[in-house]
Design a protein around this nucleic acid. Sequence first.
DNA 1: AAAGAGATGGTCT
DNA 2: GACCATCTCTTTT
Length: 203
Amino acid sequence: MKKVMTETGTRKKTEIIQEIMALPAPEAAPLLLGQRIISRHGGEMVSGIITEVEAYTQDDPASHTYRGITPRTRAMFGPSGHAYVYFTYGMHYCVNIVCGAEGSGEAVLLRSIVIDHGLDTAIQRRYGDLDPTLLRLRNLSNGPGKLVQALGVSMEDYGQPLFNIDSDLFLQFEQKLSPKDYVVSPRIGIKNGVETLWRWNVI
DNA sequence: AAAGAGATGGTCT
DNA sequence: GACCATCTCTTTT
């Protein structure tokens, strides 16, 4: 297992990523930038570096958990470090990392990644057999629905832990970015809670 | 470069 | 029956 040098010594990457996911969502969100999400779905490895995230909490009119627990949001009230996957707009899925104390109903939505392994598989999942020379790779995984498709994420991942390297979908700590490396802005695609600056983008 | 519209179905009131 | 934590394609500046 790879280890990382920190101020307090050398710790396992799995411990670091798990500690991050246990933080309240608005604190975890910027720390998840620069980390790697790895998928082994379908026997194909695809991974990417997280470059855009949003935080959602229960005390937040934009959040699915705002009106309490429902069958759909059960996982978001579950333990941190697990996946909350939801279906939206009749055809897209999005994936969140549950954060905070169990029952607190908060999570970080993954909005963009840069694929760094398994590019061929990602392109196949997004575009099928279209002529690769016609593709705009800028659009490969720069959106919450797009990255889910590229990684092969589905409702099978609902409620599954993301901190086990044995999982089909898991996170790996890579680096800690400085505030100079990202910008903060309002969240996208919502009507309520637009004044909260809970969107983080790697520059 | 930006704005608009259609696709499409689960979730909650 | 209204509302989407979206994407893609088309139309307009």
